[in-house]
Amino acid sequence: MTAQAEVWAAPLLTAGVLAAGAYVVAVLDAAVAAAVSGAGIGRSVLAGPLRRAALLVVQQPSATERPDAASWALAPALYAGLAAAGLAVIPWSASFSVADVEAGIVLWGTVESLAIVAIFLHGWSANTHQSLLAAYRFLAAGLSYLLLSMFVLIAAAIPAESLQLSRIVESQHGLWNVVRQPLGLPLFAVVALGSSTWGPLNLADGDDLSGGTTADVSGRPRLVWSGARAAMLTSFSAMAATVFLGGWQGPVLPGPAWVVLKTLVVLAALVASGHLFARVRTERFVTVCWLVLLPLAFLDLVIAGVEAL
């Protein structure tokens, strides 16, 4: 690929993967919901997401008495952009990645922390009660799970002797991190669910607060927000596949196909967890995060260290 073509192809590829990912998430979600509810999976799961999106396109966008209009409009956009920036650091094969930067996992950490800002702003800027409560309770959880992510990604960087994601994939040749550092993937899954406010960690958009940050959002802005959440879940799944499941490595199939396959496996697991596990309570999650999950992350780091010596 020539340099000029790369400049234009990369954003298109990223946007395309995210759009496809968001659609796949919606389909998976509908399928799992149908299975869990006992209704049986019908053909409507394929068209359903498009129909719902169409409805949001024609619906009137809501307004509140005095929102922070700029932040309210920009928060979903920022969130979607972050999903794209996160996806950009994922290597698709030994030779291709959109932005295989040297400090890849630190950049990923930046994406996670900015995602916290985006979600908080989305809840804050409406100036309505339930969305404000949701924004603040999310913030408590967000500032707790962020540390887990730092630890498990640093543990993955130890054997690779690099913060670069392509090097982390190469270091898994022969033995994937999911085996070598067994605590990493489950802890990262917690971060993935939190950052996309999904399933058991859906504190920002929970039904108990009438939809939380989306309680007073309708129409296209809500479409963008839902799409961005699904895109974020996709990016996180791709990251999990890269850091813990060996990324592009695998027999017979080309590298990108392996990345997509492994991403889909992680996605399916994350989406299913959303229908099988109840939402956590904020305060209890914060306590568990600091006193149970964080020591487990320490342990993960020690295991990685001992293994590398």
Binding site: T110, S113, L139, L143
Partner: peptide
């Protein structure tokens, strides 16, 4: 980028 984001949030 990373540090400033979380610190400004707090």
């Amino acid at each position: 980028l990373f540090m400033m984001t979380v610190e400004m949030t707090v």
